[in-house]
């Protein structure tokens, strides 16, 4: 506990919240997520050259095809709008989110690049998402009760 407090508040400033001194050469560790197991890890490492460097054209083209497929799915969902009914908007939002993450993570290299850039962009995204969701909520509530 004392160590924790020290890291947070101690006067010498060597605790957490420090930016690493030199992190340019350190890529993110390879994927070890819970989903997919060893097979997915192997695939991703193969495609992203071990997650070490920027990936190659093959990987980018695969991502491109993936994006195109998702877009096709979106349009398909549009055709089925009346059948999907209440699920329509959530499905579209999820598909858009997948595309968004794919472009940001792979094309904008956040997956391979220093984590600090992810923090920068994520902070903008989080503040934006929360604030504007709140705005939508308030406006809609005020509109309904008017």
């Amino acid at each position: 506990m004392k160590k924790l407090l020290k890291k947070l508040f101690y006067h010498d400033g060597n605790g957490w919240w420090n930016l690493p001194k030199n992190m340019s050469g350190k890529p993110n560790p390879p994927y070890e997520g819970p989903i997919g197991g060893p097979w997915l890890i192997k695939m991703i490492n193969l495609m992203t050259y071990g997650g070490k460097s920027h990936a190659g054209p093959r990987f980018y083209i695969i991502v491109g095809i993936f994006l195109a497929i998702i877009t096709a799915l979106e349009v398909w969902a549009f055709e089925l709008e009346s059948e999907l009914a209440i699920l329509y908007i959530p499905i579209l939002l999820i598909l858009a989110l997948i595309k968004f993450v794919a472009v940001v993570a792979f094309y904008m290299h956040l997956r391979f690049d220093n984590r600090f850039f992810s923090y920068v962009f994520a902070s903008g995204m989080i503040v934006g998402t929360v604030v504007f969701s709140l705005l939508l909520f308030i406006s809609e509530a005020a509109y309904m009760t008017r």
Partner: peptide, 21 residues
């Protein structure tokens, strides 16, 4: 700096946004 984002409607209390807001 962070909380400053979540207080803007206090300029608008008399607008009639409803009791929840």
């Amino acid at each position: 700096g962070f909380m400053g984002w979540f207080v803007w409607s206090h300029h608008m209390f008399t607008v009639g946004l409803g009791p929840a807001a």
